[in-house]
Amino acid sequence: MAAAKAQITIDNLTYGYDREHPVLKNISLEIFKGECVAIIGQNGAGKTTLAKHLNGLNKPASGSVAINGQDTRSLKVSALSRTVGYVFQNPDHQIFHDAVGKEVAFGLKNFRLPAAEIEERVSEALAAVGLTEHYLSYPFNLSKGQRQRVALASVLAMRTEVIVLDEPTTGQDYKESVQIMDMVGDLNKKGHTVIFITHDMSLVAGYAGRAVVLCEGEIIADGPVRSVFARPEVLLKSYLSPPQITALAQSLNRHSFPPDVLSVAEMYGLLTEKRGVKIGCCS
């Protein structure tokens, strides 16, 4: 059986805002359809610069980026937006309409979809992010967290194959963050490729299957989240720490705890197993 082709192929990508100071250095990366990938690293590592290459906002200085086999340099951003939806870290960089409903409908109208389908998608997307009652609201009268959800709804309505989110939980409280990430997780389960940037390692542990660690414009780790988090010395190079529960398990290594525990529930199961306790048994 032939190996699956990557949906996103980045080959020796180098990019800088001036020639003397490259932000990205010889990045090579393949992302396959249906993956959920977290891009992590310290401020200035090049995460957002890399992500903007996926929808054509940035074009390679050297090397190449291809989406479904098409070089992004040959495609307009408007054409790429049919395949790659992008949610900015700052929603004010992409919101410009005077009503929430118009904002969410904008991309769909550019696709020349029937009016009934546009209305259905807008209603569905606003309901998904909990903003149905703000259909007619002026976006900049909303909180930053709500504006972030407006931007997310605009991408959800497009139903793109690939969804890129730059710090998707910025401005959200814990409950709102979980709601957004659960929504993103559901889209991934339905087959959408999801790529998200975050500084919250618990979100990486809870939702990503794969983590790519950037440090000073280079990839220093790439693999399943468990294997990446099991290498705290590598994370430290990019000023990151694994989730607290993972760090706790690693501190108990001498007691034979695995270094890749990702959740409290998993840790609890290990503790009860070691103590010989059977949960839920009263006899």
Rank of each mutant, 00 (worst) to 15 (best):
81 S>Q: 07
82 R>G: 05
82 R>F: 00
85 G>S: 11
87 V>E: 06
88 F>G: 09
90 N>M: 15
91 P>V: 09
91 P>L: 13
92 D>A: 12
93 H>E: 15
94 Q>V: 08
96 F>M: 12
97 H>S: 12
99 A>C: 09
99 A>W: 02
100 V>N: 02
100 V>Y: 00
100 V>S: 03
101 G>D: 05
101 G>M: 04
105 A>W: 00
106 F>S: 00
107 G>S: 09
109 K>G: 00
110 N>I: 00
111 F>H: 08
111 F>N: 03
111 F>D: 05
112 R>K: 15
112 R>A: 01
113 L>D: 01
114 P>G: 11
114 P>W: 03
115 A>D: 00
116 A>T: 04
116 A>I: 05
117 E>K: 03
118 I>P: 01
118 I>Y: 01
119 E>D: 11
119 E>T: 11
120 E>H: 05
121 R>V: 13
123 S>P: 08
124 E>H: 13
124 E>G: 09
125 A>T: 06
125 A>H: 07
126 L>R: 05
126 L>N: 07
127 A>N: 09
127 A>E: 05
128 A>Q: 14
129 V>T: 07
129 V>N: 09
130 G>A: 10
130 G>M: 14
131 L>H: 11
131 L>D: 04
134 H>C: 15
134 H>W: 09
135 Y>P: 09
137 S>G: 15
137 S>F: 05
137 S>A: 15
140 F>S: 11
140 F>C: 11
141 N>W: 13
141 N>D: 15
141 N>K: 15
142 L>S: 11
142 L>Q: 10
143 S>I: 11
145 G>W: 10
147 R>W: 11
150 V>C: 09
150 V>D: 10
150 V>F: 14
150 V>K: 02
151 A>D: 07
151 A>Q: 04
151 A>R: 01
152 L>S: 05
152 L>Q: 04
153 A>I: 04
153 A>Q: 07
153 A>L: 06
153 A>C: 12
154 S>Q: 02
156 L>K: 04
156 L>P: 03
157 A>W: 00
157 A>Q: 02
157 A>V: 06
157 A>L: 08
158 M>G: 03
158 M>N: 03
159 R>F: 00
159 R>L: 04
161 E>V: 11
163 I>W: 02
163 I>K: 04
